[in-house]
Design a protein around this nucleic acid. Structure first.
Lengths: 191, 191
DNA sequence: TGCAAATTTATAAAAGTGTCTAAATATAGG
DNA sequence: CCTATATTTAGACACTTTTATAAATTTGCA
C-alpha cells in the first residue's frame, strides 16, 4: 500500500478507500480475480486510475487490503479480555457466519477451484493473520513448558482456518455444531 | 496450465517444462517475483514467448507448477507403506533440508517480508497440498471415532507447514531437534 | 525412413500496467 | 474565511501481457 491506513485519514481518503474496497468486493462476486483489471475497479468505483495508484501498488495490493479489512471487521466482536478455549470456537463461528452471509463471494472462490484457488489461499492467509493477533492476545500469558507461546497461538489459528477450509470446501453439508465439536476435539488432543 | 502434466509428455515437452522451471527457480534467487517478467523467463530458458504461453497462462501459473514439482520431489523420499507418527517428523525434516540446501531462495522469500510474503503463502500452500496427499495415504485407514480422516490428515499437514513457517521465519535460531520435539508435542496434544 | 498430426515459432496487434507530469481541487489550521 | 500545503486528476508515455495467425518444425507411428 502507498499509504498507512493505521494513521489518521481524511474524510476523502476514507471515502476513496471504501469505494475501492466495495468495487473489488463486488467485482469478486462477478468474475475471477485474474480477469479483474484496474480499469474495472476504476470504472466501478468512479475514480481515475491515477487515484488508484495513489493508494495501491496494484490490484493484488487492493485485494489484500480488502482481506485485512474484512478480517478485522469479522473478528471485531471478540473480546480480548476473556481468555478461554470458547473464544477459539467463537472465532470459527464468526468466520463461518461471514461466508454464509456472503454466498456470492464463497461461490466465486469455490468456482475457481475451492481450497486450491489463489483467492482462497490469499484470503485465508489474511484471515489467519487477523485470527492469530486475537489468539495471541488471549494466550500469550499462559506459559507452557512444552511449547513457546507464539507457536501455540499459531497452532490455534492454523486449526481454526484449517477447519474452516474443511467445512467450506470439503464437507459443505456438515452442520456448524458438528464442526464446533471437531474443533474442540482437535484443541484437546482428542484424535 | 495449458497442458496436463499428469498425462504422457513428449521428450521435447519435458525438456521445455524443465527449462522454464529452472529459469523461474533461478530468477527467484535473483529478484522479487513481482519484478520477474515472462521475457526474463524466455531469455533465461532460451524459448520464445509464444512457447511460454503454449504451456502456461502466465508467470504465476509457472510459479505454481514449480512449487508443485518441488513439493512432489522433496517428499518423494517418504514411503507410503510405513504408517507412523515418525513420518510426519520425517516430512518436516525433508522440508527443512530443502530450504537449508537452497539458501538463496529462502533469503529471497525472507527479503520480501518473510512469512507475510506472497511468495511464501503461495509456496507453502502447494507444499501443504503435497504433504497432505502423503499424510492422507498414511492415516486414511486409521479410523477415529472423534474425527473424520480427511480432517485429521489436514490437521497434520497444517501442523507440519505451520511449524516449518515458525522455524524458518520466526525462530531461525532454533535447532531442528527442538523443532522436532515441538512437533511431537503438538501431535500428541501436549500443549 | 516417410508421412500425417501435433507442436513450436515469428510476428503482429489489442489490451492492460504502472509511472510521470502539471493543472485542478481539497484540506487543515490560523 | 483565507491561504499554504497536500492530494487528486487527466493525459500521455513506455512497457508488458495476452491472444491470434500462419509458417516452420518436431513428433509418433506405420
Amino acid at each position: 500500500m502507498k499509504i498507512d491506513v493505521t494513521k489518521h485519514l481524511t474524510l476523502g481518503a476514507k471515502r476513496t478507500l471504501k469505494a475501492f474496497r466495495v468495487a473489488m468486493f463486488d467485482a469478486l462476486s462477478e468474475k475471477d480475480f485474474d480477469r479483474i483489471t484496474v480499469n474495472d475497479i476504476c470504472k466501478k468505483s468512479e475514480y481515475p486510475r491515477a487515484t488508484f495508484y495513489n493508494y495501491f501498488d496494484d490490484k493484488l495490493d487492493l485485494l489484500e487490503y480488502l482481506w485485512s479489512y474484512i478480517g478485522k471487521n469479522i473478528l471485531d466482536q471478540i473480546s480480548s479480555t476473556q481468555h478461554n478455549k470458547n473464544n477459539l470456537v467463537k472465532i470459527f463461528n464468526l468466520l463461518v457466519d461471514f461466508f454464509e452471509e456472503n454466498p456470492a463471494l464463497l461461490a466465486n472462490i469455490k468456482k475457481s477451484d475451492g481450497s486450491n484457488s489463489h483467492l482462497w489461499h490469499n484470503m485465508s492467509g489474511y484471515l489467519k493473520h487477523e485470527a492469530n493477533i486475537i489468539v495471541y492476545k488471549n494466550y500469550a500469558d499462559k506459559n507452557s513448558v512444552a511449547l513457546p507461546a507464539p507457536l501455540v497461538s499459531r497452532f490455534y489459528s492454523d486449526l481454526i482456518i484449517g477447519l474452516l477450509e474443511w467445512y467450506l470446501f470439503e464437507e459443505p453439508n456438515a452442520d456448524k455444531e458438528t464442526a464446533d465439536k471437531y474443533l474442540i476435539n482437535l484443541l484437546t488432543g482428542n484424535f
